[in-house]
Simulated scan of single mutants.
Amino acid sequence: MFTGIVQGVAQVATITDRPGLRSLLLRFPERFCEGLEIGASVACDGVCLTVTRLHDAQHAEFDVMQQSLGLTTLADLQVGSAINVERAARDGAEIGGHPLSGHVDFMATLAGIRRPENNHVLRIQVPQPWMRYIFAKGYIAINGASLTVAEADRKAGWFEVWLIPETLRATTFGGKAEGAALNIEIERQTQVFVDTVREALDERLGPLLPALEQLLAASGQSLDALAEPPKLGQ
């Protein structure tokens, strides 16, 4: 498990491709590798990878299987690429963000960037089926960083996050340009809540469900809105 608090930025030192497998040698910040062992888990841009070889105090190697390459941005990495990294949380660790599994659900696209004073706003375009799990004020993980959704437009298929200067300093987000692909992991409790409500509606309403969807659409509502989890503190 991970906390979504990025602990550093690593660089890709070498890439070795073999049939169905890619090996990444990463250079980590000083002291990041202290106590790191073969078999340990490290979140690399939000993807949980296993240490397969330790080279020295700042270098470790990871194998990435073909399925992970197809589902994440790791296939686009080049020598010199920078990625967000976090070591697996220890028992009793403070959860400064929210619990993450390191299993990326989908890739999204950085659709726009705004820079109000002392802030950095990312608008992220999402494949439509996944928007049902994204709500304003809810949690989401982007490239391994736990962030809060500021706004979400379910019909248009986008959401926004606001980044403070410290987040830009500690992560790779400041170097991202429009069109960049991003790894997204949705918040699991939200997913379970939404899916449970939708399944209950489907089970109870059955053939009436399409008519309800049409009625809600005519009034500017949706089943996803009905399934929205309660806001914190409510």
Rank of each mutant, 00 (worst) to 15 (best):
L110S: 03
V126D: 01
Y133K: 03
V121L: 14
V161N: 11
F193P: 01
I164N: 07
A180C: 09
A200I: 08
I95A: 07
R87C: 00
W158T: 08
A200V: 10
L147R: 02
R132L: 07
G96N: 09
I134E: 07
W130I: 11
A177W: 00
N119R: 14
A141F: 11
T196N: 02
A170K: 14
R132G: 01
A88C: 15
T196H: 01
E199Y: 03
L163E: 11
R123T: 15
A181C: 12
K137Q: 13
R169P: 02
W130Q: 15
R87E: 13
T172Y: 02
G138N: 00
Q125L: 06
E199P: 00
D91Y: 06
Y133V: 08
Q128C: 05
H98D: 14
S101L: 15
A152R: 08
F193W: 06
T109Q: 13
K137R: 15
V121C: 08
G144I: 06
T172E: 03
A93V: 09
E94I: 06
A145D: 10
I186C: 12
A141I: 12
W130R: 10
I186H: 07
W158D: 11
I95P: 05
A170H: 12
P99G: 11
V161W: 04
Q191C: 03
Q189H: 03
P116K: 00
F159Y: 07
A88T: 04
M131G: 09
H120D: 12
L100W: 00
P116G: 05
P165K: 07
D91L: 15
